[in-house]
């Protein structure tokens, strides 16, 4: 099967080198371990993963709710 969509060309359960985690058996999952991304052009501008305003606004709303004194109260015993 081969079809082209928004993300690229779908060949079988692979999207041009992007391994899809499609529903299926464990064996199928083992053949396509994780989603991946195409190589980026090193000269291209850095992706602005955190730049879009909606996520920034959402994160600022959440960050403003964090108690500034929380880290001072946060005391743990040494672990391991």
């Amino acid at each position: 099967m081969e079809r082209t969509g928004r993300l690229g060309t779908l060949k079988g359960n692979r999207l041009e080198g992007i391994a899809l985690t499609t529903p299926g058996t464990l064996d199928e999952q083992d053949r396509v371990p994780f989603p991946s991304k195409k190589s980026q052009d090193p000269t291209a501008p850095a992706p602005k993963n955190l730049d879009p305003k909606p996520i920034r606004d959402r994160m600022m709303d959440r960050m403003r709710k964090v108690d500034p004194k929380q880290s001072e109260r946060y005391r743990q015993r040494t672990g391991e």
Binding site: I55, R58, M59, R62, M63, V66, P68
Partner: peptide, 30 residues
């Protein structure tokens, strides 16, 4: 400012409604 360490701590909060990491993952930023 102690708020910055509190934000650092909040990044690791496993509560999906409180932790700072989870919206990033949910929105596809992570």
């Amino acid at each position: 400012d102690p708020w910055l360490q509190s934000l650092d701590l909040a990044y690791h909060d496993i509560d999906p409604g409180e932790g700072l990491f989870w919206p990033l993952e949910e929105e596809g930023s992570m």
